[in-house]
Nucleic acid binder design. Sequence first.
DNA 1: TATGAATGAGTGTTCATTCAT
DNA 2: AATGAATGAACACTCATTCAT
Lengths: 219, 219, 219, 219
Amino acid sequence: MTKAYQANYNLTMESKNKPDGQKALSFIEATRRAQIIACAIETIATLGYAQASVVQIAKRAGTSKGVVFYHFTDKETLIEQVVNEVYSSGTQYMEPRIKAQTTAVEMLKTYIQTNLEFIGSHRMYARAIAEIMANYRTEGGKLRYDVVAEEPVRAIPEMILRKGQRDGLFKAFDPFVMAVTLRRAIDAVPAMLEAYPELDLDAYTQELITIFDQATRKN
Amino acid sequence: MTKAYQANYNLTMESKNKPDGQKALSFIEATRRAQIIACAIETIATLGYAQASVVQIAKRAGTSKGVVFYHFTDKETLIEQVVNEVYSSGTQYMEPRIKAQTTAVEMLKTYIQTNLEFIGSHRMYARAIAEIMANYRTEGGKLRYDVVAEEPVRAIPEMILRKGQRDGLFKAFDPFVMAVTLRRAIDAVPAMLEAYPELDLDAYTQELITIFDQATRKN
Amino acid sequence: MTKAYQANYNLTMESKNKPDGQKALSFIEATRRAQIIACAIETIATLGYAQASVVQIAKRAGTSKGVVFYHFTDKETLIEQVVNEVYSSGTQYMEPRIKAQTTAVEMLKTYIQTNLEFIGSHRMYARAIAEIMANYRTEGGKLRYDVVAEEPVRAIPEMILRKGQRDGLFKAFDPFVMAVTLRRAIDAVPAMLEAYPELDLDAYTQELITIFDQATRKN
Amino acid sequence: MTKAYQANYNLTMESKNKPDGQKALSFIEATRRAQIIACAIETIATLGYAQASVVQIAKRAGTSKGVVFYHFTDKETLIEQVVNEVYSSGTQYMEPRIKAQTTAVEMLKTYIQTNLEFIGSHRMYARAIAEIMANYRTEGGKLRYDVVAEEPVRAIPEMILRKGQRDGLFKAFDPFVMAVTLRRAIDAVPAMLEAYPELDLDAYTQELITIFDQATRKN
DNA sequence: TATGAATGAGTGTTCATTCAT
DNA sequence: AATGAATGAACACTCATTCAT
């Protein structure tokens, strides 16, 4: 959710640093890129990672493979920019709201709340990232975004949990196990929303908040 | 865990109906099938769903594609039998132990305990099923084993949770949300075991039991 | 002309070592392979290395890409088997005839003679190998069959030249330069035959023999 | 070395005919062209003909494909200008030095000497031209610079050889075969220099001079 | 004079599946 | 009961070339 996934984001933003006068062209490129990334997200979310071929992504964008490969050297780099887009926009939404809280109890609640709010308003994003996580492998065959690579994402709730224990607000438990359980509980939601469209996200959110409140808070 | 995943098991057992004199072959057939299923599990668990091509599975079984297609009409039906094998052996291990408990509190504890025991002793099974769940899609592009299809699996913990509430042992909460959360907490473990080989499964199990005990039990 | 190019030849000939009873199937495979190799040679010779795509080769063989890739794991291995075929059949023709000579003078003459005879009767072979030599590159971008890799081919004339000098039949000259010059003189012929179909190969051969006789023999 | 390779040189020089006021631009144009041609030579020599895509050439020139296509209508015409540049600069170096000789014996020696001097001081040129010769094909699939098209290049040594025979200095031999052999002997050198960097070009030159002296001169 | 954007045909390769034996 | 051979659709990727600006 932080540095690790944002590393190469700025690499493609150099054009911003160029002197004026070229913004028009640069704008076209930025637009196209954004469009293709958006279409990639949609395609992955809808058809699944395996079926999300470059042709399919291009088709959804109303163009042909060539265009995609013109803007992204690799399918790999396209996928990475998708991951980037998802994580950076998620962080942008959640981070300030969580930082505005004072106690660990409130922070944990806000973490769950904002995360599910973001998922609710970006359903494609959540499905897409889940597909990529589960399937995107390096040449060696290992999952690129496996459980270990997810550590920076887990770091935030883990930090909150540790703070709560330090401050005497939370019980004794293994913050690692709790963080893993919490993340999975949250990650389950996108699929739920898709499968049960009538599901009340707010109610679901409150239930999750209660579950983890009761599991963590000292009484 | 039950009917839903066993439905098409007998469909491929036609050989049983064949006239006499072929029972020896029928045994060979059963053996081969079991072997191929086992190799499919291994391959999917090891290489991931997308890389688990029929060639790879056959190679691991020491034969060629032809053999696989002789015993399984489709790759599809092979995968389904894999799912079957995993679920039925899981159920066989867990069910009697859970039924031996009397209170919902003990049943929930035993559910978590036996499920993680089974995962611990069948790591390939767990990885394989996770891969299949996340990737196996019907021709229409929909996930074959999605959250809806998983209902029968979720039915057991949900039943336990409902019973606990009925018996006044559990607090008020949405059993659906709790069951989903619990299942995801359990499903997270295989990947954890693979990524962190030094992880203490027993301790992890106890943490999970405590988390869900505190989230559910009336105090 | 020897070991270096024959190394992996036998790798694909294992079927020969198998017990009887399977020769029929093995025969089909061997036939197809031979046919595809022959078509590859023709295609490369006719269209040039760059245009000799797998589709083109398959087309000339009257099948589709799939068949080619069924019999050869790679385009790379196909090309290597082409090189193999060309060199081994060339050696098979030339070697015994050269060994039948006694003096270096006669051996050199026979070397030129038999090599051009072979080229004359296998024009496609010669063109194909020239194309491959000039264009087949490894992943690193280096020519796979470059001037250094050609050393074993050059070794034979060089040996003859050294023997002639040792025996006092040849003058003093650098056998390396002479061998390179001789090989290029021979390698020039296939293109000549193609460009000037009316060219008298026997006469050309005699001219070459005379040139190198005068350049080498002590008088 | 003469007409044949210079034919289309002026075709692309139309800018000269443009009305005044643009001479500055014309100069820029000439500079750009020369630069791109130089980069094309480098690229072809370094990466090989097949890998020398327009993108690669443009990259080496520090610009983009567009620029290349602005100055050269085709990749084809670019390649032809490369050939032109190489041959005309080669001729410029060799011709006056050869003409300064009086006897055919000295002319032949000078021909070999100056050609190898030029190759030694223009290694990229030599590699590039070899790559183009071996690979550049017309739409029909025929080699553009094949053995027939090379006739004007061979014309010079052939003329020298004929003169030598006429003047009674050279033996009887087929000037065509001798010229072909000589050209190939010289054309072999660039690859040798690249593969064996420690090779002594002067010594190699003397060896070649001796070989062809002994093969041609009456004694 | 220059170039960013787009395109479409082509490349090598993989894979589930079929079929004759 | 088994399998070697074949197939065709799909995939990621490259490239010369065009075009509007």
